[in-house]
């Protein structure tokens, strides 16, 4: 967008919304919403504290481990389903059920099965992410040009070579799209898991802050989480754009 001949960088409108927030906060309309400046001040005050650092590292651990397992399981399973009718028939109904299932309802069960700790949160995170990654990898493989597959066979590709040199790359744009959506879901998973278990990571912090009506602390943590999730998603989108040049030309 251009204003008075100046090109505004993307998302400049956030500044406007920040001002609105500040104004509403200062008007003292509700204790629930402190001014944005206070939220930022609180953020800088708590960012170095031990509880915040602990919450951040626990969340990062759970998130990375969950996403890593979802990707490591989801991509090969999806590719296998796309290649093999039998595997596809066996797994597709489950993938579709879990994709649309309210996974939040499963978290208490996971807590019973895997305890009230990091393990349950990692599994929750993975469960939120993995289904869409599977479905997208499968869709990516199913749209592969038949003659690329025949070309690989014709020149004597072993199954592993066909997988790693043809199928994976041909499906990469769809796979990355799936990973991006999966990662966004994983952010939800890691937070929901922590909130329900609420003795780990940001769940514990939220519990602490909201129980004590520390609203600016609460908002500071929330803004951090939103910003992190957004940054992760944008980074993946940028990666996706790098491979889309050939996706369009297949």
């Amino acid at each position: 967008m251009r204003v008075l001949g100046f090109r505004l960088p993307g998302m400049s409108s956030l500044i406007l919304w920040g001002l609105v927030w500040e104004a509403v906060g200062r008007s003292g309309l509700t204790f629930f919403l402190p001014p944005l400046s206070e939220v930022f001040a609180t953020f800088f005050a708590i960012v170095g504290t031990a509880p915040f650092q602990k919450a951040l590292s626990e969340t990062a651990q759970a998130f990375l481990a969950g996403v890593f397992s979802a990707v490591a399981i989801g991509i090969p399973v999806g590719i296998l389903m796309g290649k093999n009718r039998l595997v596809d028939e066996l797994l597709l109904p489950w993938v579709n059920i879990f994709l649309s299932a309210p996974l939040t309802a499963l978290v208490p069960v996971l807590m019973v099965l895997f305890g009230f700790g990091l393990k349950s949160i990692i599994i929750t995170t993975g469960l939120f992410a993995v289904w869409i990654i599977i479905l997208n990898a499968r869709a990516g493989v199913m749209q592969i040009n038949r003659s690329l597959v025949e070309m690989a066979r014709c020149f004597g590709a072993t199954p592993w070579a066909a997988f790693s040199k043809v199928y994976f790359w041909a499906a990469l744009p769809e796979i990355l799209g799936g990973v991006r959506i999966g990662v966004i879901r994983a952010v939800k998973g890691v937070i929901i898991g922590q909130l329900l278990i609420s003795i780990v990571g940001f769940g514990a912090l939220f519990e602490l802050y909201s129980a004590n009506f520390l609203m600016s602390h609460f908002w500071a943590v929330l803004v951090v989480l939103f910003a992190l999730a957004f940054a992760v998603s944008e980074a993946l989108a940028a990666l996706e754009r790098r491979v889309s040049f050939y996706a369009a030309k297949r």
Binding site: L148, E150, M151, C154, F155, G156, V243, Y246
Partner: peptide
């Protein structure tokens, strides 16, 4: 398929990447 035969495809079948 075997190494004694190779194929030229109507739609080229090149790796776009």
């Amino acid at each position: 398929p075997g190494p004694d035969r190779s194929f030229v495809f109507q739609d080229f079948a090149l790796l776009p990447w």
